[in-house]
């Protein structure tokens, strides 16, 4: 169990905090951190990974602050930052070999077997001779996951791994995360709600550095169940609904507009109650779409 205990982060003394007294409990399995761009996801992950010092607060693993034995904690940890370029001039085997040395693996045989294991997990066995600069975005992310899994860590932190990937690579990656999450604690940050809904048992909604929700993913969806409505209207009537409810989606088709909104009860004639999603729960908890 990882505990984020009152984490606050300020960049500069008088600035608005990037994180404001964040308290969350992260059990094993895949845990999702969902937030808009600039919500503080990357800052929180970097603090959890011990790559950035918080202004206040602590990170505890099984009740022990990580600073007590940082080396032991880091050995238990795999980290894949957002949009990492890795080392473009190397091929995957050279890169992993170098990372193994940096992570303190000394024996050549151990390094060799570790690389083979990681190539299988990441599905890069057939790409071992290609330089990393020739890899596609998805392959680079898999190479990043491979380096994060060196030494078989118990905790894996992954920052927005699916951003910019094509649908097939995204699915491959999400399935890979789900598979890894069956044995480890995986903390996944993203702004793609569908990714979180499909693999995360628990989730946290972060908005401007403040936790808006933390708990089971299903419970989050349940909180807006029976409150999500869909109705077809004339485009000029949209403002009326926006005044009384939180709009989540708008779809234009043949001059008509279908809107999806969240409200305790139907606020427009012919509204149909529809199945709630995590996206609805998130938009509701952050108070609607701001742009």
């Amino acid at each position: 169990m990882i505990t984020v205990d009152g984490i606050t982060k300020k960049y500069g003394k008088k600035s608005v905090p990037a994180l404001d007294h964040v308290n969350i409990e992260i059990p094993s399995g895949v845990y999702g951190i969902l937030g808009r761009n600039g919500a503080g996801k990357t800052t929180l992950l970097r603090i959890m990974a011990s790559a950035l010092a918080p202004t206040e607060g602590k990170i505890l693993v099984d009740g022990t602050p990580i600073g007590k034995n940082i080396r032991a904690f880091r050995r238990k940890l795999g980290f894949l930052p957002q949009n990492t370029k890795l080392m473009p001039e190397l091929n995957i085997v050279e890169f992993l070999e170098y990372m193994c040395i940096l992570k303190g693996i000394k024996k050549k045989e151990t390094i060799h077997s570790e690389i083979e294991r990681l190539l299988v997990i990441s599905g890069l066995s057939g790409e071992r001779k290609k330089k990393l600069k020739a890899y596609s975005g998805g392959m680079l992310r898999r190479a990043g996951i491979a380096q994060a899994l060196i030494g078989d860590p118990k905790i894996l932190i992954v920052d927005e791994p699916t951003t910019g990937l094509d649908p097939e690579e995204r699915l491959y990656f999400i399935n890979l995360i789900s598979r890894i999450g069956s044995e480890k604690t995986v903390i996944l940050s993203t702004h793609i709600t569908h990714d979180i809904e499909s693999v995360c048992q628990n989730v946290c909604f972060l908005e401007k550095g403040i936790v808006k929700y933390s708990g089971k993913t299903k419970e989050a969806v349940k909180s807006v169940e029976n409150s999500v409505w869909s109705v077809q209207i004339q485009p000029c009537e949209e403002a009326k609904i926006r005044e009384k409810a939180i709009l989540t989606r708008e779809t234009y088709e043949e001059g008509k507009l279908t809107v999806r909104y969240i409200a305790n009860e139907s606020i427009y004639e012919n509204s149909v109650n529809v199945k709630a999603t995590l996206e609805d729960a998130f938009i509701f908890s952050v108070g609607g779409i701001s742009r």
């Binding site: 011990s50 930052p81 370029k85 890795l86 990372m99 992570k103």
Partner: peptide
């Protein structure tokens, strides 16, 4: 060093930033 992200990967290894 590359970008901040690649520094993070190095920082979290046994070697650390100073040695590298």
């Amino acid at each position: 060093w590359g970008e901040e992200q690649s520094m993070d990967i190095v920082l979290l290894t046994d070697a650390g930033l100073k040695k590298i």
